[in-house]
Write a protein that binds this DNA or RNA. Structure first.
Lengths: 133, 133
DNA sequence: ACCTCGTATAAGAATTGACTTATATAAGTG
DNA sequence: CACTTATATAAGTCAATTCTTATACGAGGT
């Protein structure tokens, strides 16, 4: 299972959030998740399994308890993928001046000739940057 | 659909990678994705719809063409979620945890060969997503 | 040994998601 | 207008995911 698939589930994201605060036993995690999501113990256990098998957590035994902790490796991978997009929001807010003043005029001119389109049920027409005056 | 669910699909991740290089028409994206994943035009169009409706892209019309571009907002959101885990790899681990966690990881890596380091997001091949259990 | 607690697994039902083919609609071209 | 190109939507199928209940199993206590 790919890292992003693992993070696609809200229960698993929440479990990771809980573990981010520090190591916790399966039982402790289960209690919180049950309260918050209303799902069964096996359901939580299955999510813990996914997290464990995909490398998001480490586990150690303490008697009958299983203590889970975050293993950052896959998260790091996710972060690395995001890396290439980081410029998109650092630029928007910061280096906006340069990029904007230069290339946007021409672009906006093209934008404006946008005519009425296909029947777009979900309004895909969302101006990228409308306020550059 | 939550941002992480959107990114859970390898085709959508690939589309975003393509758009990261700059605005592209639906047709251009479709050609590349069809070549790399072997799926139909409607399939790609449906992925574009998901990206559009969940805010990952903007679209503008140029004649009959639809030009897609990355909208970083949801990616930023994802990045913000990751924020709380950043300490796990930027800083030193807990004095207590380091040795232990390292040992566990090594053991687990031997026992089950997990291919967590692979970035299959850019893998230009068929969507055989789950090679892991 | 027996019982209970903590946790995991098994098996199956319900849901969701991603594809397919067929078709619709707007725009461009003769 | 008729035809083609670019893209989107509809409807249905199939597979993967996520639950559920029932059960297994190791660890500790009595």
């Amino acid at each position: 299972m790919h890292a992003f698939d693992v993070l696609g589930d809200p229960v698993r994201r929440r479990i990771l959030e809980l573990l981010a605060a520090g190591e916790q036993s399966s039982g402790e995690v289960t209690a919180t998740i049950r309260a918050e999501f209303g799902i069964s113990q096996p359901a939580v256990s299955q999510h813990l399994r996914v997290l464990r098998e995909s490398g998001f957590t480490t586990v150690r035994a303490e008697g009958a308890r299983r203590l889970y902790a975050v293993d950052a490796a896959p998260l790091k991978e996710v972060d690395a993928w995001l890396e290439r997009f980081r410029g998109f929001w650092n630029q928007r807010l910061d280096a906006l001046g340069t990029e904007l003043a230069r290339g946007k005029r021409a672009r906006r001119a093209r934008d404006q000739q946008t005519t009425t389109q296909h029947d777009q049920t979900t309004d895909p027409h969302h101006p990228t940057e409308s306020s550059d005056d």
